[in-house]
Amino acid sequence: MEHHLVLRVVSKLIIPPILLFGLYVQFHGDHGAGGGFQAGVIIAVAFILYGLVFGIPRLLRVLPWRFIRASMAAGVLLYAGTGAASMLMGADYLDYAPFGATPVEGQHLGILLVELGVGITVASVMLAIFIAFAARLPSQIKDEEW
């Protein structure tokens, strides 16, 4: 696909808005439809698109493999860690109330954090899965590269 100039230009134009939309969905889930999962999928799709058009090796230069793998775990740990923080603050696991001055404030922060955790994990896992499939295709990338 390296030769499809139109495709590459269009992609470059379209990917930033997709990412932006993803972030919007991530942080606007409180009010409208959407949340961490949907945002994660959208952000993953943006990078998948990038990978499809520019090739996996280039995608891996943008997002190193170590980074993707670490984010997979980091998202989960952020979620689970939020819960652990509530425990350390004397509440039950995943009780966000102690995070803020008022319980409602705490809920806001807590939900923000866990949704972020979901988003990070979903985006990185989806991307990792895509790369894993794509890398299996002949003439894509070599094992050592990731």
Binding site: G29, D30, G35, P103, V104, Q107, I111, E115
Partner: peptide
């Protein structure tokens, strides 16, 4: 009241 966000599903 308790969560303070509009989307019940998210809450």
């Amino acid at each position: 009241k308790e969560i303070g966000i509009d989307n019940f599903v998210t809450a």
